[in-house]
Design a binder for these strands. Structure first.
Length: 273
DNA sequence: AAACGACCCTGAAAGC
DNA sequence: TGCTTTCAGGGTCGTT
């Protein structure tokens, strides 16, 4: 579920309930997440003023006086805001309870998500320190991509999905932005011109922003029961992702579906070169 | 340094 | 119908 827009929406939701408040309790039912949940460290969060919530790539940062905790939603994670308690479901792994008794419940069937303590300088934490730049509000993105592409023989799709190059471009956005900019996903990264990287950067930014806006709209009243639903999802806007075999929206040729770097990839061989 | 594949885990959907 | 296989929006790690 969690695309960057949902991570952003989740972060905003957490912000409205956590910023300026304190976490009174952390209830853990399952420690076996992507990284073992370490309560000794995470308890540093307890009874501290939560100064701000931020996002780095797909990591949500909970910034307190004593340091920062990170939440990652993995492939299947979601967060519910509960004003009143509800029965625990199978994959409800932990809760944060605020000083005004709001329950923030983390649910993640596949357990690829995580909740870890990153200390006083989270940007130096090993999971964050090597991340590439944020794509949004970044007028240097195209030049950045072009500069880093030199000597890279991997496919341009794998290149833009590499979080050390640029964060936030998942499998959907990679396919969509390459379609919009007319670039074949299998093209070698070092064989894409500067001009085309400028177009690609714009396509990435427009796609992400549009999706964030839709996610922001459809999940405006973000609650536990809404979080797992595909309500008004960006899916309707997709040109190629998940549409193998159906007609290209530009030329009506069938969309191709191939496996690339272990991930399904969709493109139009007539429109993308 | 860069590229690749294995791996983490559960459940829904497709295939037989 | 029911069992088996495949696939999923993420990322890290070890090996080459």
């Amino acid at each position: 579920m969690p695309e960057l827009p949902e991570v952003e929406v989740t972060k905003r939701s957490l912000k409205s309930h956590l910023q300026g408040r304190q976490i009174e309790r952390i209830n853990v039912r399952e420690k076996r997440l992507r990284w073992p949940l370490n309560l000794n460290q995470l308890n540093h969060l307890l009874n501290q003023d939560i100064l701000s919530l931020s996002r780095r790539g797909k990591y949500i940062l909970i910034n307190s006086e004593r340091g920062t905790a990170l939440i990652h939603l993995g492939m299947s994670g979601s967060i519910g805001i509960l004003k009143n308690d509800r029965p625990i479901k199978k994959h409800d792994h932990f809760d944060l309870v605020t000083d005004n008794k709001v329950i923030i419940r983390f649910t993640d069937p596949r357990r690829f998500g995580s909740f870890i303590w990153a200390g006083k300088n989270p940007e130096k934490h090993k999971l964050l320190k090597n991340l590439g730049p944020e794509p949004l509000n970044n007028d240097q993105l195209g030049l950045h991509l072009h500069n880093l592409s030199k000597g890279r023989k991997t496919s341009v799709k794998a290149f833009i999905m590499n979080a050390n190059i640029v964060v936030g471009v998942g499998n959907i956005y990679a396919s969509e932005s390459l379609f919009i900019s007319g670039i074949h996903p299998k093209r070698r990264a070092n064989a894409v011109s500067k001009n085309r990287y400028l177009k690609l950067a714009t396509a990435i930014q427009n796609t992400l922003e549009k999706s964030i806006n839709m996610g922001g709209t459809t999940l405006r009243d973000f609650t536990y029961s809404d979080a797992g639903q595909k309500v008004g999802y960006f899916k309707q806007e997709l040109n190629v992702y998940g549409r193998g075999g159906s007609q290209c929206s530009k030329c009506e040729q069938p969309i191709k579906s191939v496996l690339l770097s272990g991930r399904s990839s969709f493109y139009c061989s007539n429109c993308q070169h």
